[in-house]
């Protein structure tokens, strides 16, 4: 035990570890906030879809040799998010099918472009790290950390500010519209926030594992809690603690960051499911 603490305090002295912790916690917090809404709107897979879009956009950006690919990736992902959540409403192509189409499509195009034009020697390594998250969270620059902090603050504030409206629109969109809430506007807002979160989270867990970060805390909280507020608070706390734990474990045992966080999330889900069953049994 002592050894672990020593090792930790040794690592803590390095700024890159502190950066990783800050960024990890913030991303976990943001993604869990909207997770509840996404799960309930049956958009669990939007994380996947959008992150693949972001992957495709990144490929395009690197082919175009853009120096700051954020500037291209973020808008592209936002546009896709808006398109996807719109199709969810007027259902000519069902939400899940549209997400699958866009996600697989941009993955394929992205990989194709990288293959055709990439200048990097280690192509499969590059692809792998974009998909599963890389050590890149450990190589964050100060600027990236600040960007992440600012975007996270915006996301959290927007969520708090529109919390009641997001609830109304998620629970019953028709009623919200009928009684004068601008449901379309708030759906758009949700889409944009999600896109921002996903672009942020790609650094942490990579594009394949983002859905886990969004869904698991919400699902775990829903095992035990029964009101929207309690589920939201619980999933935020849970997500943050899982991310912290995951990052620490991955530092100590030098496991991949993204998959470790997701593994901790899965563990928490199992734990909460068991507690949920016990609570149900004793409650009745």
């Amino acid at each position: 035990m002592n050894e672990i603490i020593n090792k930790l305090s040794f690592y803590m002295e390095h700024s890159f570890v502190r950066y990783a912790l800050i960024v990890g916690v913030l991303i976990a917090l943001c993604s869990s906030l909207l997770g509840v809404t996404l799960v309930l709107k049956r958009f669990s897979f939007i994380g996947d879809g959008l992150s693949h879009t972001a992957f495709g956009a990144m490929a395009v950006a690197s082919v175009l040799n853009l120096t700051n690919d954020m500037l291209f990736v973020l808008p592209a992902t936002v546009i896709c998010a808006v398109l996807l959540l719109r199709t969810g409403n007027n259902t000519k192509i069902k939400g899940d099918a549209a997400i699958a189409m866009i996600s697989v499509g941009s993955l394929a195009i992205g990989y194709l472009l990288m293959n055709l034009f990439s200048t990097s020697a280690n192509l499969s390594g590059d692809v792998c790290s974009t998909l599963f998250g890389s050590a890149s969270i450990l190589t964050l620059t100060k600027a990236e950390v600040w960007l992440c902090i600012i975007l996270s603050i915006i996301v959290v504030l927007a969520f708090l500010f529109f919390y009641n409206k997001i609830f109304a629109v998620t629970f019953d969109e028709n009623f919200a519209k009928a009684s004068g809430t601008k449901a379309g506007l708030y759906n758009l807002l949700i889409a944009i926030i999600i896109a921002v979160i996903i672009v942020l989270a790609m650094n942490l867990v990579g594009s394949l594992l983002i859905s886990a970060l969004i869904i698991f805390p919400a699902l775990s909280a829903m095992r035990i809690f029964r009101s929207f507020k309690s589920v939201t608070i619980c999933s935020a706390l849970l997500s943050v603690s899982c991310a912290l734990l995951g990052i620490l474990i991955s530092i100590i045992y030098s496991t991949p960051v993204g998959s470790t966080i997701v593994a901790v999330d899965i563990g928490a889900f199992a734990l909460f499911s068991v507690i949920g069953i016990i609570v149900q049994k004793t409650g009745n």
Binding site: V36, F167, T181
Partner: peptide, 16 residues
Amino acid sequence: DFPASVKEIVLSGCQG
């Protein structure tokens, strides 16, 4: 599986 309490739902009627 929507987690929502009665109070939250009734109050959402005031959203407009």
